[in-house]
Each structure stands twice: as structure tokens, then as C-alpha cells.
């Protein structure tokens, strides 16, 4: 459900299709406003937005070009997407009609972010155990996410009950989980 905060923030932004606020570092949807509901799931998109911003941040840091005001702009066939870190705890993704002029979009984003950032809570997120983040990562990205716990159980020898409470896994079990995740995702390393 859209909060009063977003309802106010998007007022008079005509070419806007959606705004998603993602809580970091878990990449979970915090709040959303969507002009036409039902075409896609904000929860799913929000998590990708969070990961995109994180990847972008890491890439820019490795280039020595990162600054806290960086933004990601994606121009697709029918949408213009602007992603920006509001602060270290929130990422804001704004989706505009493709026909909207880029200059106007930037102006709208600046104004909306001013309104949104003023209304977001001050939080100090708890660092989640690594195993919890690995399971979350697998649920978002693994092929056939509905079957992921069963797949991991077979590859690690851990029971489904253990995997359903990953916060209780030992360091050895967490390592085994991480190895399975890397195999399933075809990755050398997991950057969570």
C-alpha cells in the first residue's frame, strides 16, 4: 500500500509510472507508488533495484569514481529508470514514460527525493547473519526459486528445517550453504 509520503511526493509528476523505495542492505521493498497496478510485482523489482545500485556503487568504487550523489539511469524501449541512493539505508527507483525529456526527469527526481528523504525514518539496520543473506539472495536470483531450499538441502546435506532457520547455522554449515549457492548461481564469489 502506498504511504501518504509517496502520494504527496509524486503529486504533479505527470510522466511518472512508478516509484519504489528499497530498504538496504536487504533489498526489500519499503514503500511504493505505481500508476497502473498489476503489471508487475513492486517487491520483485525493488530487490533488483537495490542490487543494481549496490553493484554500481562497487563498480564505481573500484574505478575510484564513486560519490554519494551518483545515480543510475536506464533508458529502455518503453521506460526511463532513474535509481538513486537516498541515504545508506534507502534506494529510490523512479520509472518514467520513455517519452519524458531527460532534463525534466532529472528535475522531477531531485524534487521528489527531497520530499521522500525528509519523510523516511532514521534507522540503524541490524546486520543479518550471512546465512540469512545467502538464503535471501538465492530466493531472489536462483533458477526455480520455489524449489531452492530443497535444492540446497540436497547439495549441503542440511535439513529443510535447518535451512528454514538459517540464523542458527554454524560457520561450517554457512560455508557449505555458501558453496552450494555459488554452484547454483555459477559464481566464483558471493558479494552480499
Amino acid at each position: 500500500m502506498t504511504s501518504e509520503l509517496l502520494e504527496q511526493a509524486v503529486k504533479d509528476v505527470a510522466p511518472l509510472s512508478a516509484v519504489l523505495v528499497t530498504a538496504m542492505p536487504d533489498c526489500l521493498l519499503y514503500d511504493s507508488w505505481v500508476k497502473e497496478e498489476g503489471r508487475w510485482a513492486p517487491e520483485e523489482v525493488a530487490s533488483y533495484f537495490g542490487d543494481l545500485v549496490r553493484s554500481n556503487r562497487e563498480a564505481l568504487k573500484s574505478l575510484g569514481s564513486w560519490s554519494s550523489t551518483m545515480q543510475v539511469t536506464i533508458e529502455s524501449a518503453d521506460a526511463l529508470v532513474v535509481l538513486r541512493e537516498v541515504n545508506e539505508h534507502f534506494v529510490c527507483g523512479c520509472i518514467f514514460d520513455r517519452s519524458a525529456p531527460l532534463g525534466l526527469v532529472r528535475l522531477h527526481v531531485d524534487r521528489m527525493l527531497d520530499r521522500i528523504s525528509a519523510g523516511l525514518p532514521q534507522i540503524s539496520p541490524e546486520e543479518q547473519p550471512r546465512a540469512v543473506r545467502i538464503i535471501g539472495f538465492l530466493r531472489r536470483y536462483a533458477p526455480d526459486p520455489h524449489a531452492i531450499l530443497m535444492r540446497v538441502a540436497l547439495r549441503t546435506g542440511l535439513s529443510l528445517e535447518q535451512l528454514e532457520a538459517p540464523e542458527h547455522l554454524t560457520p561450517e554449515q554457512t560455508q557449505s550453504l555458501e558453496d552450494a549457492a555459488k554452484q547454483i548461481l555459477g559464481l566464483q564469489e558471493l558479494h552480499l
Binding site: A147, M150, L154, S159, L160
Partner: peptide
């Protein structure tokens, strides 16, 4: 070839 403890999961995935 699956260990006995894993058989319910294997069967579940084969049904899946």
C-alpha cells in the same frame, strides 16, 4: 542413490 534421509526431498523434486 540418494541417502535415505534425502529421499523425501528427491521424490518431491521428481514430482515437482
Amino acid at each position: 542413490q540418494a541417502p535415505e534421509s534425502a529421499l523425501p526431498i528427491v521424490e518431491s523434486l521428481l514430482r515437482e
